[in-house]
């Protein structure tokens, strides 16, 4: 029986599978193209005498559930109730990668950002201020070079601190234009019947953009909550 459930998200080509392999020691092939991990891979590691289950989610650019991979990733973070979500981020292309981080932060505050490929960024003369990034996002940011195992102990430590409540995160709140914010608050009032575990603001946003797949997921969770 595992003590904690951690999900691992990230864009394709960020070295996410390398992080997974390094942490779990599970030998699994990492590819260099999108959608490699369509199937979820599971692995385990021990840290400070506690067992962690790590779930490798499909690499995606977003969580808006426009493709099967995105839906798998989103459903797990949203309905799988992981104790924490690690988002692996490519330091050489931060803007694209932050889009996913922000979407994860909208669902859950239990997030650690793994700023990977910092060696490659350095080679390309790109300097990312990890501390400042952490301040902006309101969650821990750990610099890593996963392929050489650098920074992974620190990543485990931050996950450990987060799941034990020793770090309080203060995730960045996204403020949408007023016309959208009004619709969101109207809709949230109508969603009072949803179980506590679901983030109502996030559900409202998905409904506003006409996401059909979210309804199925909610039905499932609601059924479980009432049964």
């Amino acid at each position: 029986m595992s003590d904690y459930l951690i999900s691992l998200a990230g864009n394709p080509n960020t070295g996410k599978s390398t992080v997974f392999n390094r942490l779990t020691g599970l030998k699994q092939h990492t590819g260099n193209w999108p959608g490699k991990t369509v199937l979820q891979a599971w692995g385990f590691y021990r840290y400070q005498n506690e067992q962690y289950t790590l779930v490798d989610l499909p690499g995606t650019y977003s969580l808006l559930a426009h493709s099967p991979e995105e839906q798998v990733a989103r459903d797990f973070i949203c309905f799988g109730q992981p104790d924490a979500t690690v988002v692996v981020v490519d330091a050489t292309s931060l803007e694209r990668n932050l889009n996913l981080v922000l979407q994860v932060l909208e669902i859950t505050s239990q997030v650690v950002v793994c700023l990977n490929l910092v060696d490659e960024a350095k080679r390309k003369n790109i300097q990312v201020n990890a501390a400042k990034l952490g301040d902006e996002l309101g969650v821990p940011v750990v610099e890593t070079v996963a392929r050489r195992g650098i920074g992974l102990k620190e990543l485990q430590e931050q996950i450990h601190l987060l799941v034990h409540g020793k770090i309080k995160t203060n995730p960045l709140k996204i403020h949408y234009p007023p016309e959208l914010e009004n619709k969101i608050s109207d809709l949230i009032k109508q969603l009072h019947y949803l179980p506590e575990s679901l983030n109502k603001r996030w559900v409202a946003l998905r409904l506003l953009e006409g996401d059909q797949s979210i309804l199925r997921g909610i039905q499932e969770v609601t059924r479980l909550a009432f049964s």
Partner: peptide, 8 residues
């Protein structure tokens, strides 16, 4: 955010 924390 990317522009704030990145120096190229």
């Amino acid at each position: 955010i990317a522009n704030q924390v990145t120096v190229v």
